[in-house]
Design a protein around this nucleic acid. Structure first.
Lengths: 234, 234
DNA sequence: CGATAGCTTGACTCACGTCAAGCCCGGTGG
DNA sequence: CCACCGGGCTTGACGTGAGTCAAGCTATCG
């Protein structure tokens, strides 16, 4: 509910409708698969706690993460309409998820036009994030790319109240970061060190601290507008 | 209408509703801006003929294209809900577009749940394409990336009946291709030549001919499933 | 007290970018 | 009808950002 309220206000009736959704929750360990490519899910999965990642695996064993998800995100809302998964979703950390039957979601969106639009918005914001990742991958050097990713992650988490001052808890290994940024592990390591040396961030034991957000954002060319974090009639 | 029918069947009533939409068409020359970053459009733009591209410009003058659109695609349906454009859309070739007032679209989706879902699907497929681009950019070498792009473009156009046997008409310059693939112009040139030498494609004067789709797709690791080109209740 | 996962470092390689020049072709103007 | 021009394509020489390989270091865990 909080996730949807980032984009527009909810009526009491809409809140009730959301509360009435049947949930089946589950705890997952880091790296457990939530959904596999090729699946035809009958439920959509809402992330309650922890991080989840969409991944695509290549023939030669390489892996690319195409988006990350934070608590409050629907991780596969699109399977409601696309039916067949074209990628995997895994638990990126230990996490808690809630499964909601497609039937219930379908009724919800058929009855509540405004809620339906807000759910649509969440998938559109995911797409906006994908576009930003494409631009970073295609046209930014590694250090700017990493800086952009940190800005984005921090801003997204802050939007949900999941930051801790200038820090966030984000327990990704450097191998995983490589899969996010499309770089080798070694280069991830060196790039983090570059940002550290510039006095822009600290990164230790799963805690990322931003020492100077403005300078970091400036280097990254980060403009948070694409995250659509404002309330507006939609 | 044909674009929506790729994903599910339409009822006569739905066709009528679509036909009743008020259109204002316009001809645009290659490189004309259709919508600019920061705009708050009051109309959404449907591409009728030609190609359009979403672009993001960096501070230092670099440019990245984040998606291409073919006739039948809505180029900024998301502005109906996101309100503010986070990127530019330009005419990638001379093209014809139709503008539809947001008010009319809004009524359409509020009245016709099934149409609303199908329009949602089109934005979800765009997102699936973005994910494929991310994976190509992050983890594939240039030649595989180009091969994948050609497979995707061909398959998308074929889905609309816009292919010409094994060829498609696609008048992009090598500079523009570089902006699509996130590579330098020189490297685009050499990569095209590599594919030519392998006997996989011809590319001359705006006509791309696929000499062996299976081998091309195999090299690219291309699996068309993510394009969702099949009819199914949605 | 090994075993293991993750981080760090150095040496080397290579894919791709940059720079610069030449070529081809169609369009324009004298 | 020709000279000129500019855009797009091609090529070679060279530089560099990032990948690969391999080793050592550190912290955590049984």
């Amino acid at each position: 509910m909080r996730a949807l309220e980032q984009y527009d206000v909810l009526s009491d009736e809409e809140r009730d409708a959301l509360r009435a959704l049947p949930l089946r929750t589950r705890l997952l360990q880091k790296n457990e698969e939530i959904i596999r490519e090729g699946d035809r899910p009958t439920h959509s999965c809402l992330l309650v706690a922890g991080f989840a990642a969409r991944t695509q695996n290549l023939e030669d064993g390489k892996r690319q993460i195409t988006n990350l998800h934070a608590p409050g995100d629907f991780v596969d809302l699109h399977s409601l309409l696309l039916k067949r998964m074209d990628h995997n979703v895994i638990a990126f950390s230990d996490c808690e998820v809630a499964f909601i039957p497609h039937g219930a979601l379908r009724e919800l969106i058929d009855r509540h036009n405004h809620l339906s639009r807000l759910l649509w918005v969440t998938t559109l914001v995911d797409a906006a994030i994908d576009r930003a990742w494409i631009t970073c991958l295609g046209r930014r050097p590694a250090i700017d790319h990493l800086a952009h990713f940190i800005c984005e992650l921090f801003t997204r988490l802050k939007g949900r109240g999941l930051n801790d001052g200038n820090s966030i808890l984000f327990g990704a290994t450097q191998v995983e970061l490589g899969d996010i940024l499309g770089m080798s592990t070694v280069h991830v390591n060196r790039t983090i060190q570059d940002l550290r040396k510039l006095g822009l961030i600290d990164w230790e034991a799963g805690r990322v601290t931003i020492r100077d957000f403005d300078r970091l954002a400036d280097r990254a060319g980060f403009d948070p507008a694409y995250l659509n974090q404002w309330v507006e009639p939609r």
